[in-house]
Computed example of a mutant assay.
Amino acid sequence: MSRSGVKRVLVVVPHVQAGERLLDILPALESDMRIQVMISTPETGYRWSGIEEYVRRLDGLVIPWHQAVSTRFDVVLAACHWGLAELDGPVVLMPHGVGSLGSRIGYDGDADRHNLHRDHLMLGDDVIPTVLALATDEERAVLGEACAEALPGAVVAGDPSFDRMLAGLPYRDVYREALGAEPGQRIVLVSSTWSKHSLFGADPAIFARLAEELPRPEYLVVAVLHPFVWHAYSRRQVLAWLARAREAGLVVLPPEEGWRAALAAADVAVGDLGSVLQYAVGLGVPTVMSTCSLAGVRPGSPAEMVSRIAVPLRLDRPLAPQVSRAGPPADAERERVVRTITGRPGQALSLLRGTCYALLGLDQPSHGVPVSPASLPEPIR
């Protein structure tokens, strides 16, 4: 080794959405000469196709899981609980979507279950995360009821992804150009999460229908599919399924990045119970939500709140008139949704940076770390 005494930080990447969230945090740490960052993918039984290629493209030091579990780390960064109990080092756990509560009803059908239950956070009598980064003060209150043992390590840190979207709003025109939009053309961002209740799950032809029904001179339709869709079926298969839609002018974004910039550029967002539509309302974008997805929504969740704001999308009816009815949320509605996304707007990066440096036992560098705007979208060609 060329250097001694360097603090070791492990970034745990079980899937793309966790990796992308952690990439929002890394710039606050990795340039420090006292810190070395390593990356590993847990071997939990859930091994998504293509995850090895994804982590290799990050150009960091990727170590095998067996090495990760046998190494002492000064900080472990995670945005998913998979495999964390096997690691040696203080864990900073954050959500990889909107908040830690989530909106999806669990596999067991329990509508009251959310991601702050003790079965996510504890192993026996031990709390797994040393620090649990929460998005809002409401989540802290829920944690106190669901898993009081984790409260001492809870930090309300906001949402770094949403902060980057807000920082990207001044670059709306640049994002539109990158997506291929013509002047005056309305961008309709169409997103689908995974599961049978998702937009794509309920109607696999939804992207083609929208691209064909919305007149091309007036609209540009942009598709965002959850990374699990890409990894469950493969890039080749997904693009084959979307061939008809792409012939009709659909722009397809890759699973890794681009959707946040597309949201900043969008005139309308069409979606389901996933996080994208919740972020859309938070940005003030007019929204249309599939009524089919409500079957998978946990009562009282952020997605249910969005369903009361968005135009309901009926898949058995013509789509264009439903999209044209969408208007921006009222200020009070938008503010309510923002409060479910972040309790510390614009502060997530600095709060998480301070948290990590405290665990590392290092003084923070004197220079600040500005919030980077959402990255430029790069559509699949």
Rank of each mutant, 00 (worst) to 15 (best):
315 L>A: 07
85 A>S: 12
210 L>N: 03
313 L>P: 13
139 E>R: 07
119 D>Y: 06
355 T>V: 15
195 S>C: 02
214 L>R: 05
96 H>W: 08
274 G>A: 08
225 L>C: 02
45 G>F: 09
75 V>D: 10
310 A>P: 11
108 D>V: 06
104 R>Q: 13
358 A>D: 14
348 A>E: 07
58 L>T: 04
35 I>W: 15
278 Q>R: 06
337 V>G: 10
195 S>E: 06
18 A>L: 10
113 R>G: 02
61 L>G: 01
33 M>C: 12
52 E>I: 07
9 V>A: 09
107 Y>I: 14
38 M>I: 01
89 G>Y: 14
204 P>M: 12
88 D>Q: 14
372 S>M: 11
224 V>R: 00
47 R>M: 12
216 R>Y: 10
312 P>I: 01
376 L>N: 01
90 P>D: 14
351 L>G: 01
307 S>A: 15
284 G>A: 07
8 R>G: 04
271 G>Y: 00
93 L>W: 12
24 D>L: 11
96 H>M: 03
324 S>D: 02
225 L>D: 04
301 S>M: 13
74 D>W: 11
258 G>L: 09
328 P>Q: 00
379 P>G: 08
363 D>P: 08
270 V>Q: 12
61 L>I: 13
57 R>T: 11
274 G>S: 12
232 A>L: 04
103 S>K: 08
270 V>Y: 07
175 Y>C: 03
1 M>D: 01
134 L>I: 05
322 Q>N: 07
204 P>H: 14
35 I>Q: 14
266 A>Q: 02
312 P>F: 00
98 V>K: 02
116 L>A: 11
230 W>M: 09
343 G>T: 05
22 L>P: 11
50 G>R: 03
338 V>N: 02
92 V>C: 08
379 P>D: 04
300 G>T: 08
264 A>R: 00
251 V>I: 13
175 Y>S: 04
241 W>D: 15
155 V>H: 03
369 V>G: 06
68 A>D: 09
144 G>Y: 10
380 I>E: 09
337 V>D: 07
63 I>Y: 00
315 L>V: 03
245 A>M: 05
258 G>H: 06
286 P>H: 05
290 S>C: 09
33 M>G: 12
149 E>S: 07
278 Q>Y: 02
15 H>Q: 14
2 S>Q: 08
62 V>G: 04
9 V>G: 04
3 R>K: 12
13 V>L: 10
215 P>V: 11
196 K>W: 00
208 A>R: 09
66 H>Y: 13
176 R>L: 05
24 D>I: 03
29 L>Q: 11
250 L>K: 10
355 T>R: 13
317 R>E: 15
112 D>V: 01
313 L>Q: 12
107 Y>G: 15
157 A>Y: 06
3 R>T: 11
18 A>D: 09
58 L>A: 06
95 P>Y: 01
